[in-house]
Design a protein around this nucleic acid. Sequence first.
RNA 1: GGUUCGGUAGCUCAGCUGGAUAGAGCAUCAGCCUUCUAAGCUGAGGGUCAUUGGUUCGAAUCCAAUCCGGAUCACCA
Length: 591
Amino acid sequence: MSIVKQIQSAVINALSTSYHIPFTEKDFQINQTKPEFEGDYTIVLFSLVKSLKKSPDEIGTELGKTLINNNPHLFTSFNIIKGFLNLVVDDQYWIALLQKNHNDICYGKHALNGKKVMVEYSSPNTNKPLHLGHLRNNFLGWSVAEILKANGFDVLKSCIVNDRGIHICKSMIAWQLFANGATPETAQKKGDHFVGDYYVRFNDEYKKQIAQLKDSGMSEADAEKNAPIMLLTQQMLQDWEAGKPEVMELWKTMNSWVYAGFDITYKKIGSDFDRTYFESNTYLLGKDIVQEGLDKKVFYKKEDGSVWIDLTADGLDEKLVLRKDGTSVYMTQDIGLAKQKYDEYKIDQSIYVIGDEQNYHMKVLKLIAQKLELPYADDIYHLSYGMVELPTGKMKSREGTVVDADDLVDEMINTARHHTEALGKVKDFTSDELVSLYDVIGLGAMKFYLLRVDPKKKMIFNPEESIDFHGFTGPFIQYTFARIKSILRKEKSVGTGTYSGNLLPLEKQVLFVAEQFPNIIADAAKELNPSVIANYLFLLAKTFNSFYSEHSISNAETSDKKELRLQTAVMTSNILQNGMKLLGISVPERM
RNA sequence: GGUUCGGUAGCUCAGCUGGAUAGAGCAUCAGCCUUCUAAGCUGAGGGUCAUUGGUUCGAAUCCAAUCCGGAUCACCA
């Protein structure tokens, strides 16, 4: 049980024996004691004043005395300053915590809870390579899945591949028109980039044709509709839906190029999925649910045959769920897919990692599911994250103003190499070891950078300023870990002996922070927010580094002290390693 | 215009279930490597927590209004 919980129940007990009034943990507040005061945890007394009808100092004195009498092994002393009761926790508490947990690889993890949750993330389009925005999505999705696992959930990672539709046909048409039969092999290009180039090419051509038509007197809207390349593309989409063999063939070929490229990127950044859905398989889903909705009178049919839902009573608009020609829209497909996920896996919760531009869509999706009284409706959760923008504004793949994922990854790994070479600490590494070290550091820096910010906030990425490797960064934490490992390599054995003396302030501070890890994991899961972990790991590493520079571990004052500090180092390294794993980041033994 | 998210140091961000003098990192300046990895440590400067009003013993945090910025409100996905 965490120290805060122990203090809570100790306070509740003390209050009920002293005053015979039942309190709960919500009736008072426990904070960490500010560094300028003596103590570890502080009870704010003001909220008790009304119900006890005594002054804060009176309550504090009585409560402090009772707490120490009732819990002689937990508290050693207390002081009261301006309505705050500061409690000093017995050093032996922290030492016992250390002895019990320093070697526990699972420290901080929670027991299985029997709940099954699906995390859908990544969701690429097969007409262009992944970019910086996808990276944020992938790292978030992966990390949230890990955090949920650490909290005892049975997690399934899924991905919906957007492999059909007009945008896919655009790159296909451009390839037909301009490629002269080129392939990724002949062009020496990664498949997703190869196809993405034709998507850009399409838009260049399209713009040109629109301009020409406008010059010949056509309105902009008409020009957009009647540009020859657009007419070709629309024809191709119809041919695709009709299953025309040569179109299907081209579609399959070009998609396979893209998948080959994605595989490389996913492998590099460490994304994987337990279940991949393809929109070409799911886009017809949901139509039966539309009929069900009509029967239940949740939906209604307009005169032209299109089907709608009226959400104006919920403060939203009317929303189309089926076109007049009977084909399904995005919303219909998503309702269908939600059902399929539930039918397949009987999940207790379905988390969608999708950008905040789709907040409205997801809100409507959930609302429709609720109105249809689908059993999984309430378990749909949109993990909404902010867009990644450049200093110049939003990224647009059509205009080529994107930070490409592969380029960025390469750049980060290169920067890691430069830093490492400049420091010259790993000259004895083999070239294989060096390559994997650069990967670990470069990817670690990038993942940490994207995960350390609250997901729901949009973030600005400035490619001009290369990502820092100092301070609040992944490499800082990796470095702290490597430094500990360096000591542990030299000190062959870490005993399990006890230490009965007092702790120095920095020794205690490390244990004080380490104690919070299980709560941090729980908080991160509750908020579905990896930045909680990132901020915590930084605090722990920083605290440890202060301790490290102030006190020698190997040459501690006594052998007891040495053991205590070695155990502290081991516990810190375990938390750093496991915590970074929750962010999808590895830690190197040396760097 | 409706809905919604945000506005905290020069920059990037924590803190937001109300508590003590608002914290980090970067950048700037000053120190610390013959002793466990200096990707580190110590210190200094830097703030009208967008504005105004309200609730409270106490507000960056809660409420209301206003200003600024983003997203969204398609028979696109």
